[in-house]
């Protein structure tokens, strides 16, 4: 079980390492969103703390959609996906490996983006900064797990690039809300983000489980 997962993960990472398409495009896209928002709102002081959480989350969300669309499109070329479907291995492994790989990519983007973000928004964190290390991975996991699942779901439709955000964003909304509010309360330091971290954790557990259970059906949908 874990062996197959590892093989898939190493393959995905190697492909990304050779091209660096996903990380580069996400990074530049997220940077553009951050700059655009900074330009249009000119954030300073307390106001910048209020909106920064939302901007960071929405920037990550938009950026990762562009990468998630590519995640399965790679497998479509040369009928790789059909070969995968015929392989006698559980589809859940392939799914989990893809989620882990994309989770890594998005995390890299966030780590690189964070200093830029602090500079552009003149941020000084008033709450417990270490809690961000809990909120951001949990939120990213929610985004990537659902995103990978829905990318696989929309892969065989016409205009799939358009369809993914349309079906992902409504489902992702509660996690986005929790992520934005948790980040916001850490940045401003005037309320406790614990409840939102719990909600994110619950969302992650529920949707990761459901995705793992239903992925086989989506993979073999005829």
């Amino acid at each position: 079980m874990t062996g197959i997962l590892w093989v898939h993960l190493v393959k995905d990472l190697r492909i990304e390492w050779r091209s660096r398409e996903a990380v580069n495009s996400m990074l530049f896209f997220a940077l553009l969103v951050v700059v655009l928002f900074s330009l249009s709102f000119d954030p300073q002081g307390a106001f910048s703390r209020d909106i920064a959480g939302g901007v960071l989350c929405v920037a990550t969300m938009f950026a990762s959609v562009s990468a998630l669309n590519q995640a399965w499109a790679r497998e479509i070329r040369h009928q790789v996906l059909d070969a995968q479907r015929m392989a006698p291995t559980p589809g859940a492994d392939m799914f989990l490996a893809k989620v882990l790989a994309n989770f890594l990519f998005v995390t890299v983007v966030q780590v690189v983006l964070a200093p830029v973000f602090v500079v552009m928004y003149n941020l000084r964190i008033l709450g417990d900064a270490w809690k961000l290390a809990l909120v951001l991975p949990l939120g990213t996991w929610a985004l990537v797990a659902n995103g990978t699942f829905f990318a696989a779901l929309s892969i065989r439709s016409r205009n799939r690039e358009l369809l993914l955000p349309l079906i992902l964003f409504p489902i992702f909304m509660p996690a986005l809300l929790a992520m934005v509010l948790a980040t916001g309360s850490i940045l401003t330091g005037d309320s406790d983000p614990t409840l939102w971290i719990k909600l994110l954790l619950g969302y992650d557990i529920i949707f990761t489980t459901v995705s793992l259970l239903l992925f086989e059906i989506v993979l073999h949908a005829e």
Binding site: L153, R156, S157, N159, L163, I171, P174, F207, L214, V218
Partner: peptide, 24 residues
């Protein structure tokens, strides 16, 4: 999704999305 996705697999995919939506 039901409108965009073509072919026979659309029923399966839509059913999966319907369940996801209800959990949400």
């Amino acid at each position: 999704l039901r409108r965009f996705a073509a072919g026979p697999q659309v029923q399966t995919l839509a059913a999966v999305l319907g369940i996801f939506g209800a959990i949400d």
